[in-house]
């Protein structure tokens, strides 16, 4: 019986993992930036969208490793730069209420999304998966797009890489210490602004890279920025601010809710997303792995 159930829903489950993978790449930066710097970067979705359009730019016409690789590199670069710009822009607001920084990034998000819409129009644009990955493979007797399997793998790799960097390196120790107690770290003589610059840059680069990676599945289109921002926020809230483990588990849960949930009970999918959020917050107001006080 259970085997049958698995068999019928295999595609949905795998899709859930692929979405979860993408969500993790997207959410982990958002979570750390927020946990560390109390900067709620509402431009995160716009960065994803910028990445998606870069994917279209370099891998829109043909399927090639060169094009896809260039898109990834360009996205990482654009993301880094954007992170630097955001970090500089929010610096004068450091002494003002956190809300001001959120509003600023919201303004940036509106501008970026609109500029992209002006340049690329309102249609859904295709992004090609690289050769070899743009076909289907057999998984337990079902055909499944190879690209999505690869995406699951990439997501896992990035998760491990981020985990190792944050948990096992000196820079990571600094990041973790900043999440726990920022003033303490600056009292030790570490320049907060540099840590913020680095984290915001890395987080933004991951968001833009996620845009390229998500391209072959979702394409590039106006409105995607909002959708992914919301999903990433739900992941962050569920997982707990500043927690990598939380972002990972949250992304997996929301990935399955979005995919398996939609497949099993299509009418209730939105409710389930909210339900999952509500449930977690009732039981753990600060998210599954959140230690820091909210707000």
């Amino acid at each position: 019986m259970i085997v049958d159930w698995f068999d019928t829903n295999l595609v949905s489950i795998l899709n859930g993992f692929a979405i979860g993978s993408l969500l993790f790449i997207l959410a982990v930066g958002l979570s750390i930036v927020f946990g560390m710097m109390d900067v709620l970067n509402l431009a995160h979705g716009a960065l994803y969208l910028a990445g998606a359009y870069l994917g279209y730019q370099f891998a829109g016409d043909t399927s090639s490793w060169l094009g896809f690789g260039t898109a990834l590199g360009a996205a990482a670069l654009v993301g880094l730069l954007a992170g630097g710009v955001l970090s500089t822009m929010t610096e004068p607001l450091a002494r003002r209420p956190h809300l001001d920084q959120a509003l600023l990034t919201l303004g940036v998000a509106l501008v970026v999304a609109e500029l992209l819409a002006i340049s690329y129009g309102n249609d859904v644009l295709r992004v090609n998966a690289p050769p070899g990955l743009n076909e289907s493979v057999q998984v337990f007797g079902r055909t499944y797009p190879a690209y999505r399997l690869a995406l699951i793998g990439v997501g896992l790799m990035i998760a491990i890489a981020v985990y190792v960097v944050v948990e096992r390196t000196t820079i990571g120790a600094l990041v973790r210490a900043s999440v726990a107690d920022r003033d303490m770290v600056s009292a030790l003589g570490v320049d907060n602004r540099k840590v913020k610059l680095a984290v915001l840059g890395a987080g933004s680069a991951l968001a833009a890279v996620a845009g390229v990676l998500g391209g072959p599945i979702y394409g590039a289109a106006p409105g995607l920025d909002e959708t992914v921002l919301i999903l990433a926020l739900v992941v962050v809230v569920i997982g707990g601010l500043g927690s990598i483990k939380g972002a990972f588990i949250g992304a997996l849960v929301i990935g399955q809710v979005e995919s398996l949930g939609r497949a099993l009970v299509p009418d209730l999918a939105s409710f389930m997303l909210f339900g999952a959020l509500a449930l977690v917050l009732i039981v753990r107001p600060r998210g599954l792995f959140g230690a820091k006080a909210a707000g």
Binding site: I230, V236, F274
Partner: peptide, 25 residues
């Protein structure tokens, strides 16, 4: 009742998420 349990930026995130879910609905 869920949103007002929090405050500040957390409230901002929650209301954003709730609003978007209602939008999808």
């Amino acid at each position: 009742w869920l949103a007002v349990r929090s405050g500040g930026i957390f409230f901002l995130m929650l209301t954003l998420a709730i609003g978007e879910l209602i939008f999808q609905l």
